[in-house]
C-alpha cells in the first residue's frame, strides 16, 4: 500500500471514484426531497429540482408555502404533536421495564431464569404481524383502539425483547464484586439497581433510548393497526401515507410533508449518531 506506482495511483483514483459515486447515490435522493420542499408548486411540477443549482443563491426561487400548507391545512402539525405524545412514553416505559427485568436476569437468582431468558431472546424474531389480530380484537372490546395508552402499551410490549436482551448483556458485564460489596453493606437489590446498575449503564441506556425513540417515531405499521384510522391520534408516518394517497403526484406537498416526518430523526441522528451505531452493534438481531 505504501509504494507509489502508476498502478496504485490508478487504483486509488478508482477507489475514490467508486466511493464518491455511491455516496452521491445515497445523498442525492434526500437532497432532492429537501430542495423540492422549498420550491413553489408550479416550479416543482414543471422542472427538476436540480435546476435550482443553476442559480443556487437566487432566494426568490424558494418558499415556505409548502410547509405552511402541510402543517396547518393537511394536519401535519397535529400529527407532529401526536408523534411526540406517542413516542416519549413509548420510549421511557419499555426502557424502564426492560432495565428492571434485565437486572434480574443478570444478577438475581430465581427459578425459571434461564428458560425465561431463552423465551425473551426467541421473541426477538417473532414478526409483529402474528400478534395484531388477537390484540386488535381485545382493544376493540375494551375501547382501546385509537387511544394513546393503547399505543404506548403496545410499543412497550413489542420493544421489550430487544431492550431486555441489550441491557442484560450490558448489566452482566458489570463487575461482580461491586454488587457483592453493596449487599454486604446492607443494600437491597432495589438500591443496587438504582444506585449502581443504572448509573453505570448510561452508555447502554442512551443507545437503547435513541433506538427505541427512532423505532417508535418511524413506525407506520403498529400505528396503522391500533390508531384506528382517525386523525386524533395518528402519528406523522400515518398522516404522510394518507397524504401520498390523496395527493399522489403533487410533489411540493409530499416532499414538505416527508421532510416534516424526517426532521426529528435527522436531528437525533446528527446529534447522537455514536450511540445509535453502538445500539445497532450491540443488538444486531432486532428486526
Amino acid at each position: 500500500m505504501s509504494r507509489v506506482t502508476p498502478g496504485s495511483v490508478m487504483s486509488r483514483a478508482l477507489l475514490h471514484l467508486i466511493i464518491v459515486l455511491l455516496c452521491l447515490v445515497w445523498l442525492l435522493p434526500t437532497l432532492g426531497l429537501l430542495v423540492s420542499s422549498f420550491r413553489p408548486a408550479h416550479a416543482v411540477s414543471s422542472s427538476g429540482w436540480w435546476t435550482v443549482f443553476a442559480t443556487p443563491f437566487d432566494l426568490t426561487q424558494y418558499t415556505l408555502d409548502n410547509y405552511r400548507h402541510v402543517l396547518f391545512q393537511d394536519g401535519m402539525a397535529r400529527a407532529f404533536l401526536n408523534s411526540l405524545i406517542i413516542t416519549v412514553p413509548s420510549t421511557a416505559l419499555p426502557v424502564l421495564v426492560a432495565a428492571l427485568a434485565a437486572f434480574a436476569f443478570a444478577w438475581l437468582r430465581f427459578p425459571g431464569r434461564e428458560v425465561l431468558l431463552l423465551v425473551v431472546v426467541g421473541l426477538l424474531v417473532v414478526p409483529l404481524q402474528t400478534t395484531f389480530i388477537p390484540i386488535l380484537r381485545l382493544y376493540s372490546q375494551w375501547g382501546a383502539v385509537g387511544t394513546f395508552a393503547g399505543l404506548w402499551l403496545a410499543h412497550t410490549g413489542y420493544g421489550l425483547p430487544f431492550a431486555i436482551y441489550l441491557l442484560r448483556n450490558f448489566f452482566a458485564a458489570l463487575p461482580r464484586d461491586l454488587f457483592e460489596s453493596a449487599y454486604i453493606d446492607g443494600a437491597s437489590p432495589w438500591t443496587a439497581f438504582w444506585r449502581l446498575a443504572l448509573p453505570m449503564s448510561t452508555p447502554a441506556l442512551a443507545s437503547l433510548v435513541i433506538f427505541q425513540f427512532l423505532w417508535v417515531w418511524n413506525d407506520l405499521l403498529v400505528a396503522l393497526i391500533y390508531a384506528g384510522g382517525t386523525q386524533e391520534v395518528a402519528p406523522l408516518t400515518v398522516r404522510l401515507s394518507t397524504l401520498v394517497g390523496s395527493y399522489g403526484q403533487e410533489w411540493h406537498v409530499l416532499t414538505a410533508a416527508a421532510f416534516v416526518t424526517m426532521f426529528v430523526p435527522l436531528v437525533v441522528f446528527f446529534a447522537l449518531q455514536r450511540y445509535f451505531v453502538r445500539g445497532i452493534l450491540a443488538g444486531a438481531v432486532k428486526g
Binding site: L22, C23, W26, P29, T30, G32, L33, S36, L214, W217, N218, D219, L220, L236, T237, L240, S241, V244, W251, L254, T255, A257, A258, F259, T261, M262, P265, L266, V268, F269, Q273, F276, V277, I280
Partner: peptide
C-alpha cells in the same frame, strides 16, 4: 450511507417515489 436508517421507511418511500 447510514443516514437512511434514521428516517422512517414511509419517508424513504416518498423520497424514492419522487
Amino acid at each position: 450511507i447510514f443516514l437512511p436508517m434514521a428516517i422512517s421507511f414511509a419517508g424513504a418511500g416518498v423520497i424514492w417515489r419522487f
